[in-house]
């Protein structure tokens, strides 16, 4: 059996990559992808813990399913927002949209 720590290492690295991508990219769609990666890392964590700590109970996997639901919703709305921004400002380049500026 694979040690739990290995799974956690993989999920942490995937999480960090997602964070890095989200912070780094200037393309809104790529940021969206990075966020999906972060959510996947979380799912991996949930399933890993579920497998090793509560093997007789599917709650870890059920949580992961809910995360997926929310991720799907988030992707759809996120994409819609990006398209609206793009239509309006002519670019998906998020660094040009600075409406949050003080």
């Amino acid at each position: 059996m694979i040690p739990l720590f290995y799974v956690l290492v993989v999920s942490t690295l995937l999480f960090a990559l997602g964070v890095y991508g989200a912070l780094l990219s200037t393309n809104a769609i790529r940021i969206l992808m990075s966020i999906e990666m972060i959510l996947n890392a979380v799912n991996l964590n949930l399933v890993g813990f579920g497998r090793y700590i509560t093997p007789s109970d599917p709650r870890g996997q059920i949580f992961a399913i809910f995360v997926m639901t929310v991720a799907a919703a988030e992707a759809a709305v996120g994409l819609a927002i990006i398209l609206v921004i793009a239509r309006r400002y002519g670019a998906a380049a998020i660094d040009r949209v600075r409406m949050l500026k003080g």
């Binding site: 989200a22 912070l23 780094l24 940021i31 998020i94 660094d95 600075r98 409406m99 949050l100 500026k101 003080g102």
Partner: peptide, 13 residues
Amino acid sequence: ARRLQTGFVQSYA
């Protein structure tokens, strides 16, 4: 104070 508010979402992130 508004110098802090760059408007870049990623700066906030």
